[in-house]
Design a protein around this nucleic acid. Structure first.
Lengths: 115, 115
DNA sequence: TAATAATATACGTATATACATATATATGCT
DNA sequence: AGCATATATATGTATATACGTATATTATTA
């Protein structure tokens, strides 16, 4: 992982919003992100795929659902960068709205691994 | 300053390389960055202007030279994000080469404010 | 096995971003 | 004033990136 790759992954708003939720929630499936961010499924899927390709996140399949989470193997500087980003994001309206929407989602798949 | 803006400013390699040198050196003029990064003057100038517009850096004129430095008013999370980026960058070949080139520059303007 | 749900991908298009080159502006010096 | 140096900007072009829509894939359930 290089700063260039990690920063590129954070340079798009959809990926940034997704990652901020992932940091907070541990792991989320595509449908949860689609709902929370109010964006189309292909759009979320495409951005998550690019995050996976860049090894910023990892995925695991659980039945129909594919759960994404921050790659635990990220180097320390990268994790700290993400945490700093989160601290900055938590002041933003958009971030707060996203979290609220996520929490309000009915029928969230609950077979997740708790983190 | 928002994460979106700061991260966008870091998503281009020229801006990233410039910022990494600025963090280390305190302040640098356009000609020093042009030399250290081995890029055209307009390219450096354009990117520094965009960093200034985004308020990531500030500038001051000293005679013919215009010195750029990290905006001291950046919020804490942003400074920490930049430091984390620096820690990641210091492992990279490119970063090391840039620093080496900078140090090797003859006739660096020396009327800088020490930081 | 058919139908449904969740996710992924392909493809054409639109937009943003960076680039090189040329030119303009500002300062210092003689 | 005239010239050199440092920096900035304008312009057209190329490239990267994101987008919407349609379709494919994979797993579950009836």
């Amino acid at each position: 992982m290089t700063p260039e790759i990690l920063l590129k992954s954070l340079s798009d708003q959809t990926r940034l919003r997704s990652l901020m939720l992932l940091i907070q929630e541990g792991e989320l499936c595509v449908c949860e992100l689609t709902y929370a961010l109010d964006l189309s499924q292909p759009k979320i899927s495409r951005h998550l795929a690019s995050l996976r390709d860049m090894q910023v996140v990892v995925d695991r399949r659980a039945g129909q659902w594919i759960y994404y989470s921050i790659n635990p193997k990220l180097p320390e500087w990268a994790k700290e960068l993400l945490q700093a980003t989160l601290r900055g994001s938590q002041k933003e309206k958009q971030y707060k709205a996203d979290m609220k929407k996520l929490k309000s989602m009915a029928n969230r798949p609950d077979n997740r691994i708790c983190v």
